[in-house]
């Protein structure tokens, strides 16, 4: 098949069409993508599309207190009379920011350290990097984040730092295992033999081949980051009131269970939906880079 002129769309199709074809080969991945796009749109446009934007902040209206779901308040209202639908939408905002901050802080150093440790697998600094990573990995991420967050003053920023600290070693380990096996590939040997620099080999030869696994992990991890962030908030070490955070909402709402069930159940469902969405999306990303689908 001839590729039409070098139009922008043509090049794009040539390069990414196959990825999209592979992604959609599993229809459930499309559901995941749909959920995440939906959540992202709501999060981005929350101030403009939510019915009661003021409910996002310090707002009290005791006349509307703990109203069950109705047409005016589809998710009901909380103990201060704030609209829960609005707060959930703003909660997505916080969750996605958390994901973006944590992953952008932890993935890059994790990947670079993994590349170095994997490429120089028999050198002393590789062992040092990996042992440090092991120490972090040995502590469950939630526990580590909890202990770090408890030392710092509870705030959204500190919670993000705490989660990031727990996260980078997983990328180091992932990339380490990929790099230490790819370094034996013939194309790496060929580049070494002509005298290509280690930086070239790590970033131009090995990294592009690890990208698929990294992106898959990023997508799958997004769900986990949200969960841990919510857990931190739930125990009061994360985002502080009045920031609308799904974890905080569940925690506050739990005092009113079971009578005013909607206060914690709807935020909980929202978390489940996002995590599930990211997991399904992750499967699709995995398919995109898989060689078994042609």
């Amino acid at each position: 098949m001839m590729i039409q002129k070098k139009s922008w769309a043509g090049t794009l199709t040539k390069k990414y069409g196959r990825y999209w074809y592979k992604f959609k080969s599993n229809k459930i991945s499309l559901v995941g993508l749909g959920v995440i796009v939906f959540v992202a749109v709501i999060a981005i446009f929350a101030p403009w599309i939510t019915p009661y934007p003021t409910s996002a902040g310090l707002y009290v209206n005791f006349s509307q207190q703990k109203l069950p779901p109705s047409l005016a308040h589809p998710f009901g209202t909380d103990e201060f009379g704030r609209d829960l639908l609005t707060r959930v939408a703003f909660g997505f905002r916080y969750s996605l920011t958390l994901v973006a901050v944590v992953l952008s802080i932890s993935v890059a150093p994790g990947v670079v350290l993994g590349l170095i440790a994997g490429y120089y697998v028999n050198r002393w600094f590789s062992a040092v990097i990996m042992r440090i990573a092991d120490v972090f990995v040995a502590v469950p991420p939630l526990l580590l984040a909890l202990s770090v967050a408890s030392v710092l003053t509870p705030s959204a920023i500190n919670a993000m730092m705490a989660v990031s600290l727990a996260w980078w070693p997983w990328y180091t380990r992932l990339v380490y295992s990929i790099a230490s096996s790819l370094r034996n590939e013939d194309y790496v040997k060929a580049a070494e033999l002509v005298g290509a620099s280690p930086t070239h080999i790590m970033f131009k030869e090995i990294f592009p081949n690890a990208l698929g696994s990294i992106l898959t992990k990023v997508t799958l991890d997004a769900g986990w980051v949200i969960l841990i962030g919510a857990a931190l908030s739930y125990v009061g070490l994360g985002a502080q009131a009045p920031t609308p955070d799904l974890g905080t909402m569940i925690s506050e709402g739990s005092q009113y269970l079971p009578a005013s069930w909607w206060i914690s159940i709807f935020p909980a469902c929202a978390i489940v939906a996002v995590i599930l969405g990211f997991n399904l999306l992750g499967d699709g990303v995995n398919d995109m880079f898989s060689s078994s689908i042609k």
Binding site: D186, Y187, A190, V194, K204, N209
Partner: peptide, 16 residues
């Protein structure tokens, strides 16, 4: 001194 490997599928980087 150069070398040509047996399997061209693995001696060329698939992402380059």
């Amino acid at each position: 001194i150069q070398i040509v490997f047996q399997n061209p599928a693995s001696s060329l980087n698939p992402r380059r």
